[in-house]
Amino acid sequence: MSESIKSDEMNADREAGKLTALLKQKFPNDVLDFHAHRSDETVVIERDSLDSVCRFLRDDSRCAFEIMLDITAVDGLEMNMKPRFEMVYHFKSLTHASRIRLKVPLEEDDCRIASISPIWKSADWYERECFDMFGIIFEGHPDLRRILMYEEFEGHPLRKDYPIDKQQPLMELKEIEERHTYGREL
């Protein structure tokens, strides 16, 4: 979390929750920061450790996060966040009735991160959406294409430097053969 949005209230939320403590103990070098603002447990981790942290969260019986709820990103351009991007992952455990949020800071000129779609299938489309909207590259994603916008769309609309009133030309509808790559594993 960048300095600019760290408030006094947030400092009050800085007691490490159970899961945060567990992650800190398991990945001492990878946990960069944590908070529990409004009792949402949040852990900021190193980019390279994402895969192992996620596998730990899913497989360890003390965590057992069966559901990967949401992947999104935050563009901190207007907040002067350093680094600019932040990946946000939300998880839900049914076994322990707990939730956790993982955050991964990403540099603007190197916004690549490992895909977690091998771990949770729901990550597949969320990562595609994140790529579409923020231009973040997910390494190891099986089929990283645009999902909400069309293929020819230029730029990534949810980045703060994408003007809201920018217009792009409409594309002609392509023939079915051109739109789809047949034989790709569906």
Binding site: M1, S4, I5, K6, S7, E9, M10, H37, R38, D40, T42, L69, D70, T72, V74, E78, M79, V88, H90, K92, R99, R101
Partner: peptide, 25 residues
């Protein structure tokens, strides 16, 4: 709203409809 980030899960018609909001104050 004060600066911070929250995720508010609610049960929508189809399932968990969560709002993730970030405010810088």
């Amino acid at each position: 709203p004060p600066a911070g980030e929250i995720y508010m899960p609610t049960e929508g018609g189809n399932g968990e409809m969560g709002f993730y909001l970030v405010s810088d104050g």
